Simulated assay, not measured.
Amino acid sequence: MPVNAALSAIIILAVALTTFGTRVFPFLLFPEGKEIPPVIQYLGKVLTPAVIGMLVVYCLKNTPVFVSPHGIPEFLAVAVTAGLHVWKRNNLLSIGVGTALYMFLIQVVF
């Protein structure tokens, strides 16, 4: 279905306002100086690792372990990503290096 310029502008505006709203909402709900409830603090600590864990499982669910290369590129990329993250504590670095390593292994080595 072709979309004209006016509809495209409306869609972009709606997405931008929604994104901005989701970014501003926590600051309106928990202004500076107001105590953040313990449940929200707990969720802030545990949700990020939980989501990353679910993403790893989702990304590796169709990894062919019984045919060549037996999931070796995936395992190496995950191991390097996790090791770099533990060592440097830098999400961008660990994910970038792990992704580059995986692409290299798939294209060049295996």
Rank of each mutant, 00 (worst) to 15 (best):
L29E: 09
Y58G: 02
F30Q: 03
M54G: 09
K45Y: 10
G53R: 05
L55G: 04
V39S: 08
F30C: 02
P49S: 07
I52L: 15
P31R: 02
V57P: 02
G44A: 08
A50D: 03
Y58Q: 13
K45S: 11
G33C: 02
T48N: 12
E32R: 10
P38W: 05
M54Q: 11
I36E: 06
Y42V: 10
I36Y: 03
V57H: 06
P38C: 00
P37W: 04
L55W: 12
A50Y: 11
L29Q: 13
L43W: 12
G53V: 05
V57G: 01
E32S: 11
V57D: 02
P38G: 06
T48S: 13
I52R: 03
V57S: 09
A50R: 08
M54Y: 15
G44W: 08
A50Q: 12
P26F: 01
L55I: 11
F27R: 13
P38H: 04
Y42E: 10
V51P: 01
L28M: 13
I52E: 02
V51T: 10
P38S: 11
P31G: 05
Q41W: 00
M54L: 15
P38K: 09
P38T: 08
A50F: 14
V56S: 06
P37G: 04
Q41G: 08
Y58S: 15
